[in-house]
């Protein structure tokens, strides 16, 4: 089984190199999508010898993931792993994510930060944000409450699931949109515990509390867009 990791990166010159180094031994291929960075992300990624694609302008994390996923399918991926470039996802969990797919027990595996392994450095405000997103996901998006992590960016899926999950949100809202598509399809999905490390850097770049409103708005407008 050919496992390919997809890493969207936007202005991650400081961290992308290390992330690639850690991810590479655990997979058969790496596709980095430089999402219109203004720093040296593209060159740094190229130096590591993996497949690097470049968005001519910044289109958002969701757009980057989709480009990377299409690329991975084109180069013959059987399993696609989505992982953040900023190092908050511990790549050592990749085998854990891929395992249920290898065994033929699941089509989509999502990493959950809330299944036992305590996340490191997660601030209270972020916890409240997750709770708000979870309620919104259940009531508005119709995503089952049994899903423990409403905003997990670490996931693996087989090629069939990748082809079928046609997510269109370019920015932050792709996460909720994907969850909705996954849980409403007949794809077999499962959550596995993963550990996420929050640092000042990643927090500064990650979701801000106001983003919950932005995400809700993007999803709302998205409902009326083709």
């Amino acid at each position: 089984m050919r496992i390919i990791a997809v890493i969207p990166a936007y202005n991650e010159e400081k961290r992308i190199g290390e992330t690639i180094r850690k991810v590479r031994p655990l997979v058969d291929g790496v596709v980095v999508v430089d999402d219109g960075s203004s720093d040296a992300t593209f060159d740094t990624a190229m130096q590591s010898g993996v497949t690097v694609l470049r968005h001519a302008m910044n289109r958002g994390q969701g757009a980057g993931l989709k480009t990377g996923t299409e690329a991975a399918l084109q180069i013959g991926a059987d399993v696609i792993v989505h992982i953040d470039a900023d190092g908050q996802h511990d790549p050592s969990f990749i085998p854990v994510l891929v395992d249920p797919i290898k065994r033929g027990e699941a089509d989509v595996v999502m990493g959950s930060r809330f299944m036992g392994l305590r996340p490191e450095g997660i601030p209270l405000s972020r916890r409240l944000l997750h709770r708000a997103i979870k309620i919104f996901n259940a009531l508005v998006m119709g995503i089952p409450r049994k899903l423990t992590d409403p905003q997990s960016g670490l996931r693996a899926m087989n090629s069939e699931a990748s082809r079928r999950l046609d997510f269109r949100q370019d920015r932050m809202a792709h996460c909720s949109e994907l969850l909705r598509l996954i849980t409403r399809s007949d794809l077999r999905w499962v959550e596995v515990p993963v550990k996420v490390t929050y640092s000042e850097d990643t927090l500064a770049k990650g979701n801000k509390n106001l983003d919950a409103v932005k995400i809700a708005w993007q999803l709302f407008i998205g409902m009326f867009s083709k």
Binding site: G49, H55, A56, M57, R59, T67, A71, I75, R168
Partner: peptide, 26 residues
């Protein structure tokens, strides 16, 4: 939003243009 999605589609097509098919990556 419709325009943004079309723009993304163009940016994506441009990014994928030079990708080899079914070859070794990474």
């Amino acid at each position: 939003e419709g325009l943004e999605r079309k723009l993304t589609e163009m940016v994506r097509r441009d990014a994928l243009r030079d990708l080899p098919k079914k070859e070794d990556a990474g």
